[in-house]
Design a protein around this nucleic acid. Structure first.
Lengths: 191, 191
DNA sequence: CCTTGATTTGTACGTACGTACGATCTCGCC
DNA sequence: GGCGAGATCGTACGTACGTACAAATCAAGG
C-alpha cells in the first residue's frame, strides 16, 4: 500500500474522529504512518487531501443506499418501503462513521464548490435510483416529474432518518411505523 | 447593544459565511466591532462563543419549523401536508443562512456533546410538534408510538428537504408533488 | 553498475492562532 | 468628587500550524 493510499485512509479515519478542520497535517501523517511532507507531494495540500477523503467517504454512504434499495423485491410499494427502511435503519446503526463523514461532507459543501457539486450530482442520482426502485421499474423509464416528487420524498426520508440515526439512533422508527405514518399522511379523510 | 450581543451576532454571521473552525477570534472581533480580548471576557473562549452562536442559530430554524407547522389549518391530513411543505419550501428558499447554520451545527454535534444534546432534545420536540400538528390534536394527547412513527417521518421529511434546499434549492418539490409521492408510497396494490 | 525519475524523509521558515494580563475606561453610588 | 466594580482595550507570549525545499532513498531500464 502506497503512502498515498495510507494518507487517504488515515484522512477518512480522522475526518470521522476529529472532523475536517480539527485534523492537522501532522495528525494525518501520524495516523497514516506516512511522512508529513508526503501530503504536499501526493495531494498538493492538506486541504486537497481532506477534500478527496471527504468525497470518498460520502460516496461510500451513497453506495450503501443504492445497494440497499436495489435489494428489496416486494410487489407492493408500501411493502418495498417497509423493507427498505428496515434495511437502511440497520445499516445506519452499524455504520455510524459513514454517517458522521456524510455530515462533515455536507458541512464542507457550504464553503467548497467542488464538494457541493459532487454532492448535488450524487443526490440527483440517488433520487432517481430510489424512485425507480420504489416503483420497481428501470431508471430510464422515469420522468422528471416523478423524480422530483417521489425521488425527493424518498431521498428526504432517507437523509432525514440518517440525521436522526446520527444524533440519536435509539429513536429511529421501524419500517412498519414508517409505512403506517405514510398512510396517515396520505389519508384523504379527516383523521 | 453590548459587546456581548455584538459578538454573538457576528459569530452567527461568520458561522454561516466561513463555518465553525475557519472563523478566527480576530475575525469575530472584526465582524462584531468588539475587541479581541472581549471574547475571553464574555465567553471564556472563542470556542464557547462559537458554540453558543451555533446553538442559537440552530434554535432559529427550529422555531421557523414550529411556527410554520402551527399555521396550517386544513381538515384533511394530506392537505395539511401539502400546505406545510409549500410553506417550508418557501421558508427554506428565503433563509439559506439558517440552513447553513443548521448544517454546521450538526457537523459540530459529532464532536461536541453539548451541541449534540441540545440538538437531540430539539429534534424530539419538533417530532412531537409536527406529529400533533399533522393530526390536528394537542401534543399532550400523543402517544410515544405515534411520535416515533409519524413524528420521525415528518421530521425526516423536513430535514431531508432542508438538506436538499441547502444543496440545490432548484430541485425542491412542491407540496403537491410530495403529497402525490406519499400516496404512491402508501399504496397497497402493485403499482 | 550506473543513471534517471518517482517517491520519501528531515527540517526549518514564516505566519496566524488563542489566550493571558495589566492598563484604561465607564458609570452608578456613597 | 472620588471610589470601585464591571467592561473594554492594547499587546505580547508561546505555540502549532501548513508548506517549501533540499537531501536521501528506492525501483527499473540500459
Amino acid at each position: 500500500m502506497s503512502q498515498r493510499d495510507d494518507l487517504l485512509a488515515g484522512a477518512k479515519k480522522l475526518l470521522v474522529e476529529k472532523g475536517y478542520h480539527r485534523t492537522t497535517a501532522r495528525d494525518l501523517a501520524a495516523a497514516s504512518g506516512a511522512h508529513l511532507a508526503s501530503i504536499g507531494y501526493h495531494f498538493g495540500s492538506k486541504d486537497a487531501l481532506m477534500t478527496t477523503a471527504t468525497l470518498q467517504a460520502q460516496g461510500e454512504w451513497g453506495d450503501t443506499i443504492d445497494t440497499t434499495m436495489a435489494a428489496s423485491g416486494a410487489e407492493i410499494p408500501a411493502e418495498r418501503l417497509r423493507i427498505c427502511v428496515d434495511a437502511l435503519v440497520a445499516a445506519m446503526a452499524g455504520q455510524r462513521e459513514v454517517l458522521v463523514a456524510s455530515v462533515q461532507a455536507y458541512a464542507q459543501a457550504a464553503f467548497d464548490n467542488d464538494i457541493r457539486e459532487v454532492l448535488t450530482t450524487a443526490t440527483a442520482e440517488t433520487r432517481a435510483t430510489m424512485a425507480a426502485a420504489s416503483l420497481d421499474i428501470d431508471p430510464q423509464e422515469l420522468d422528471a416529474e416523478t423524480v422530483r416528487g417521489l425521488g425527493s420524498v424518498l431521498h428526504a426520508l432517507v437523509a432525514g432518518l440518517s440525521l436522526q440515526a446520527f444524533l440519536d439512533p435509539e429513536s429511529l422508527p421501524t419500517g412498519d411505523q414508517v409505512v403506517r405514518a405514510v398512510r396517515i399522511l396520505a389519508g384523504d379523510q379527516p383523521d
